Amino acid sequence: MDRIDSPRTRLLPATSEGVAEAARLLRGGGLVAFPTETVYGLGARAADGHAVARIFEAKGRPSFNPLIVHVADPGEAEALAETGPEARALMEAFWPGPLALVLPLRAGAPVADLVTAGLPTVALRAPAHPLAQALIAAAGPLAAPSANPSGRVSPTAPSHVLAGLGGRIEAVLDGGPCPVGVESTIVAPDGADGMRLLRAGGLPAETIEAVLGRPLIADTDPARIVAPGQMESHYAPRGRLRLGAMAAEPGEILLGFGAVAGDLSLSPSGDLREAAANLFAALHRLDAEGAERIAVAPVPDHGLGRAINDRLRRAAAPRP
């Protein structure tokens, strides 16, 4: 199928035909905003790295945070992540609903590296809105942050989405106003200690604690960044990075971009979407190959390039 590249935002009706068209757009690499019970999400197929890169581009997101993957049910979650007894108990109690779980990513799971921001975990939730459920059933798991420009108020109606993202995305599936109106609560297993609260949201902590039979652990460590709504988490390879390199020095591996070919390239054609989609996979590959010194070609500092450079600067920052 031809990939979608020129958005013209359409408002799709809350009908089977509207859902089918939204799914078709998603399968072609498009972005579709859809209603959940919390806020409108900006969806791309979770396995499609290029489409996920377009999410960051459309939102003007300054850096690559992890995204929540919206799934149909616990069975679909089990295909993507490793679950334990407490996670399964919370799924059974609160899914579909406004609860996201950050769980270890299953080996070989069809989730783009950009969704997890290079982390070994993935945030999952099953939304309760019937249109969201129908869309996921038709298109598969969807990576979806809130459907608004980065830093702006989260959208709870189609008009909010169109005001912020009109012309940047393919369509909005019109489900009317969202009933909850605040983002999902996010929790994560913390070994034998129980569950850690990563973000307060639409499901009260006390309700979760009643099912667990013990308190949630407050997350106060700024270094523990594994989910949306927290400070940046940055993946740094073991090798040292030198940025803005036009050529490799002795002992370096060159990570290229555009005309700077390199030993490995983020995008030989200089496509920022391709570079964003390839960024974490490239860093992981260099780690696996034991690269100790990595030279990185210049990446234009506009559009998605700002997010790529933000992540590279963090990866290259001095370490203790």
Rank of each mutant, 00 (worst) to 15 (best):
A139Y: 13
P250M: 04
E232N: 10
R125S: 07
I68Q: 10
S150Q: 06
L216M: 03
I217A: 06
S184C: 08
G175D: 15
R314Y: 08
A275L: 02
L312N: 02
S267N: 05
A171M: 07
L124Y: 10
A227I: 05
V226N: 00
F64V: 09
T38N: 12
Y40V: 13
C178G: 14
V39C: 15
M231D: 15
R224H: 14
A275N: 05
R224W: 11
A107V: 11
R27I: 01
E86F: 00
L42I: 05
A223D: 15
E57C: 00
R238M: 04
G244K: 10
P268A: 03
I294G: 12
R199V: 09
V153L: 14
R125A: 09
R199N: 12
A277P: 02
A87M: 01
G75R: 10
G29L: 00
A46P: 06
E78T: 01
A138M: 09
Q133W: 06
Q230P: 08
S269W: 02
E86D: 14
R214E: 03
A282G: 03
D219G: 04
L67T: 02
M195R: 01
P179N: 13
A247I: 01
G194E: 02
W95Y: 06
A227H: 07
A112Q: 01
G118Q: 10
A171P: 10
M246F: 14
E57A: 15
V226W: 07
L31V: 05
A89S: 09
E183Q: 13
R106F: 04
Y40I: 12
P127A: 12
G201C: 08
V260P: 04
P204L: 10
A81W: 02
A188Y: 02
V69I: 04
R238E: 14
A134I: 05
G166R: 08
A51L: 03
R3D: 03
M246Q: 15
R242W: 14
A107C: 02
V180L: 15
V69G: 04
T83G: 01
E17L: 14
A87P: 05
P300E: 10
A89N: 01
R306T: 08
I308M: 08
I217E: 08
R314T: 04
G28A: 12
A247K: 10
R8C: 10
L26F: 09
L216Y: 08
L131V: 11
R152V: 05
H70R: 11
L197Y: 12
E206M: 07
L264H: 07
A137R: 15
V69D: 03
I4W: 00
E209P: 04
L80R: 03
I186E: 13
V102Q: 02
A205I: 10
L241I: 11
P149A: 04
P96E: 06
A275T: 05
R240C: 12
V19D: 08
N148S: 07
A33L: 11
R168C: 00
L105T: 00
R152D: 06
G140F: 11
E252W: 12
G97H: 12
T116W: 07
E92S: 12
P158K: 09
L203N: 09
V187R: 03
H70F: 11
A147M: 07
M91E: 06
